[in-house]
């Protein structure tokens, strides 16, 4: 387990681990042992191509968002919760149907490595 205090770009996986137009899940852990699950989506046909958001569905109360179907609603890239189908913006984390939001993480692909800033 990595133990650091400063936020920096950290490698999560190879870009070949990504699934086109779909999501995978990664576990982020800090030095205190606190863990966070993030959902990483690879949308090669969209503007940013890759997005990372919290994996916890605040409405369904389960860690499932990476298993949702991705797409767009009025040009906003979104993931639909696989539990109750609410849409969450992949850019802002805002829920389009209810007063809820999920965390958004900075993510990039460097030298075929997927990196998250945390």
């Amino acid at each position: 387990m990595t133990t650091t205090t400063n936020k920096t770009w950290r490698t999560i996986c190879d870009s070949s681990d990504l699934v086109k137009d779909s999501g995978i899940c990664a576990l982020l852990a800090d030095e205190a042992g606190n863990e966070e699950q993030i959902a990483i989506f690879h949308l090669p046909n969209s503007e940013e191509k890759i997005y990372a958001v919290g994996n916890y569905d605040p409405i369904g109360k389960a860690n499932v968002l990476y298993r949702g179907i991705v797409g767009c609603i009025a040009d906003e890239p979104v993931v639909a919760s696989p539990l109750y189908k609410q849409h969450f913006s992949l850019k802002t984390g805002r829920c389009l149907q209810e007063e809820q939001s999920i965390a958004v993480y900075e993510i990039r692909i460097e030298n075929e490595q997927v990196q998250v800033f945390y």
């Binding site: 499932v64 949702g68 539990l83």
Partner: peptide, 22 residues
């Protein structure tokens, strides 16, 4: 199959029925 994978509802992707806790 790869091109169809991302189209499926989670139930079809994981070939099971998702329950409330995931």
């Amino acid at each position: 199959k790869k091109p169809h994978l991302s189209l499926q509802d989670t139930n079809d992707t994981y070939l099971g029925n998702m329950q409330k806790d995931g």
